[in-house]
């Protein structure tokens, strides 16, 4: 080990690095899992053609369903991308989503559309709590969010006395049932999918166009160097966990709008795992510092396409679980393989 270290210190090339290789690597990183998504779509379309006699996957109606299904996971995945880029993890997003949906539906009974800001505030509050414990008390993210996953789940159940709360006249149900015309009369984007796209766009802007974004990558890439170069690491950590909580709150409002109801026990169960899977599938490194928000979008789409396609093909839900799990492991293997070529050792 020592030998390797000493050798590496001396074997660095003194010449100029070929630019083309760097560009190629960057391009491969950006494109990432897009080919996998495309191949998956083609395979499923071919499968439905073969088994059902008609290609039911690539229809406007079905694709709209896929986007709708991917939307909430995309929003959670965006928050998770911030967190994982700093080298952290947020296990509490599913529980926060449930709690936010509960407060949101309850509030909508009396205050109508104020249900949305209530959901956002609920999420932000829990996210900030996570952030404070991680940034100031310096507890490990895994432990903090494991604890808040459990505790917030309890709070979500407590809120409705462990029952389902309904609001058949939910005033903001339109964000789910409505749609945004892209090409008027022909192509429409389902409401939830439009929200998810806006979140992705905003996240991209923060990560790539603001000072904060650069610092998020810096903290994830080398936390000690970040501190020594004068970055307020606590600001960055507080932001990413708050953002993750806020987006989980938004997910809660989206979920409430879809269901006209919320249930503290079942809602959002294991959503955190799907969000993490989307981020990892998108090529973001689990140790932080490397990754992109586009990758997360593609990762979330892969998961949604996979679920939808397996249902269309008549695969039982038991086998769906097995296939999904294998895809996640395969993706992490891919992550390792990619990292091997980079400067990180």
């Amino acid at each position: 080990m020592t030998e390797k270290g000493a050798l590496m210190a001396n074997t660095e090339p003194t010449g100029v690095v070929p630019l083309r290789r760097t560009r190629l690597k960057g391009w491969m990183r950006t494109v990432g899992m897009l080919p996998v998504l495309v191949i998956l779509c083609i395979l499923i379309q071919a499968g439905t053609l073969y088994f059902n006699g008609e290609g039911r996957f690539l229809s406007a109606q079905n694709l709209s369903i896929v986007l709708q299904q991917a939307a909430i996971n995309t929003v959670l995945g965006a928050g998770m991308t911030f967190v994982i880029l700093t080298g952290g993890i947020d296990l509490s997003v599913g529980s926060i989503l449930a709690a936010a949906a509960m407060t949101s539906v309850t509030a909508s009974l009396d205050y109508g559309s104020l249900g949305i800001p209530v959901a956002l505030l609920t999420g932000l509050l829990f996210g900030l709590l996570n952030g404070v414990l991680i940034a100031f008390v310096r507890l490990p993210p895994f432990i903090v969010t494991l604890g808040s996953m459990t505790a917030v789940r309890g709070i979500a159940r407590l809120w409705g006395n462990d029952t389902t709360v309904f609001n058949p006249e939910l005033p903001f149900a339109g964000i789910s049932s409505g749609s945004v015309p892209i090409v008027p009369g022909y192509v429409e984007l389902p409401g939830l999918a439009a929200i998810a796209l806006v979140v992705i766009g905003l996240s991209w802007f923060i990560l790539r166009r603001t000072v904060l974004g650069v610092r998020i990558y810096a903290v994830g890439g080398n936390p000690d160097a970040a501190r020594l170069s004068g970055i307020k690491v606590w600001v960055v950590l507080l932001f990413v966990y708050a953002a993750s909580g806020l987006l989980a709150g938004l997910g809660g409002a989206m979920s409430a709008a879809r269901l006209y109801a919320a249930n503290g026990l079942q809602l959002g169960q294991s959503y955190e795992l799907d969000a993490i899977a989307a981020v990892i599938l998108g090529g973001t490194s689990f140790v932080g510092g490397i990754g992109s928000i586009w990758g997360t979008l593609i990762g979330a789409l892969i998961i949604a396409v996979l679920s939808n396609g397996l249902i269309l093909l008549g695969v039982s839900d038991i086998w769906q679980l097995i296939v999904k799990g294998l895809v996640i492991i395969g993706a992490v293997a891919l992550d390792r393989y990619r990292l091997r070529g980079s400067a990180r050792t």
Partner: peptide
């Protein structure tokens, strides 16, 4: 403790001053 090995040269050089250079309080 010094460099951000996965980040470009430009980002490494600018990291100490991006805050000072930023427009509207936070845009790169």
């Amino acid at each position: 403790l010094g460099l951000f090995l996965d980040m470009p040269v430009a980002a490494n050089i600018n990291l100490g001053v991006i805050g000072r250079d930023a427009r509207f309080g936070g845009l790169l």
